Simulated scan of single mutants.
Amino acid sequence: MRTKRFSALHLIILLPVTMLLTAGVLLAVFYGIFGKEGLSLLEGLYLVNSRFVGEYDQTQVVDSTLSGMVDGLGDRWSYYLTEEEYAAQNQRRTNQYVGIGVTVNYESEKGLTIVEVTAGGPAEAAGLQSGEVITMVDGFSLAGENRYEGSEHIQGEEGTTVTLEVLGTDGQTRTVEVTRASLDSDPVTAKMLEGNMGYVALANFYDHSAERLEEEVTKLQEEGAVALVFDMRNNGGGYLSQLTEMLDFLLPEGPIFISRDRAGNEEVTQSDASCVDLPMAVLVNADTYSAAEFFAAELQEQGVAVIVGEPTSGKGYSQQTFALPHGGAMAISTGAYFTGNGTSLIGTGLTLDAEVYLTGEGDAQLEAALDLLAQN
């Protein structure tokens, strides 16, 4: 009996000691991996959760901490996303969105001016037309500065309804109920210009963009295009896979993209021999970033395209998005990239064949590109 009592007592004493030793080992491992800075972050969260007397939102505290961590990198290309922002980004990158199917601008002080109505979308079904102004959303006035919040109020879950007050082109106001739906957003638009010059505008490098670009370029070739103009203005980039697929389609055999990770490991993407054998031009502006900027650089380096427009930022790092346990995400630069010949755009941006700015009348950049193509 004495032995059993001794064993039980020994076990009671041993358990806390074991737990303390385990905690100590974990703390040592954590310190070894993250250092005192990592321990400080953990302790800061512990102090807030255990000692702070005011009311607070823990998710907001974590979001602010992680956002500050990314800001501290001093890298303009890395960023932090809250749970809501991450979900919205994932939706946007599918080239689909939930909405009513209108493109708007902020020119009118009265609200959101409808520039375009998506064919087959809810807005068209509800009778909304280009030129009309959405002045109120579910009782929220869009007059003045409020109009900049209008899109947020119009967006919502698929299948739900939104009540709009609309000022028609005849000056009459009416109330319209529209059911939100999931809509496809085509990243590519194309047309044949005078002189059989093919024009292809690309909005982004997200899902289906390479497939759509190939379809439109092929169609223009079949219609007799003698040259191609790619409009990359206001294109913020997207997926590397879409970029390299486009370059492979357009360019002859050879290296088209080189990436290098933190450890110095290098990966080279090659194009096959099949290509589009036409002179090309790329339109760019200050908002041509990432894959769009690289697209122009690689076509120019291969000697198949001229670049027309405004100086670009010179991005040379690729970002990887890491989902976090609480629903947010951290997108940080994890690789440097180079053209097929090993050139980085960092600090230089694109070398323009013609530096041209828009003046508000016509499209001087497009005209300059067409002139350069006509001279070749």
Score class of each variant (00 low, 15 high):
67 S>D: 14
94 T>S: 13
72 G>C: 02
110 K>S: 10
69 M>K: 08
112 L>Y: 01
72 G>S: 08
103 T>E: 13
89 Q>E: 14
98 V>C: 11
83 E>M: 08
62 V>D: 05
85 E>A: 15
95 N>P: 07
80 Y>G: 04
89 Q>K: 12
114 I>Y: 04
118 T>E: 11
80 Y>V: 03
104 V>T: 15
85 E>C: 06
100 I>V: 10
105 N>A: 04
114 I>H: 03
62 V>A: 06
116 E>V: 13
89 Q>N: 12
115 V>M: 15
77 W>T: 07
65 T>P: 06
71 D>T: 12
70 V>R: 02
79 Y>A: 07
91 Q>P: 03
116 E>I: 13
88 A>R: 15
104 V>K: 01
105 N>L: 08
113 T>D: 07
70 V>L: 04
116 E>N: 15
76 R>D: 10
115 V>W: 08
82 T>Q: 03
110 K>Q: 15
79 Y>V: 06
69 M>C: 09
103 T>V: 15
61 V>G: 02
111 G>V: 03
97 Y>F: 13
87 A>D: 03
114 I>W: 03
99 G>N: 09
64 S>G: 09
75 D>R: 01
87 A>K: 11
74 G>C: 06
117 V>T: 09
81 L>I: 01
68 G>Y: 07
105 N>C: 04
79 Y>L: 08
71 D>V: 05
114 I>G: 05
64 S>C: 07
93 R>L: 08
95 N>F: 09
69 M>N: 06
71 D>K: 14
72 G>M: 02
120 G>Q: 11
67 S>A: 14
94 T>C: 09
73 L>P: 01
92 R>V: 06
107 E>W: 07
94 T>A: 12
119 A>Y: 10
112 L>P: 00
87 A>R: 08
110 K>P: 04
95 N>K: 02
109 E>Q: 15
101 G>R: 00
80 Y>M: 00
70 V>Y: 01
112 L>V: 05
97 Y>D: 08
114 I>Q: 04
66 L>N: 00
69 M>A: 12
62 V>F: 09
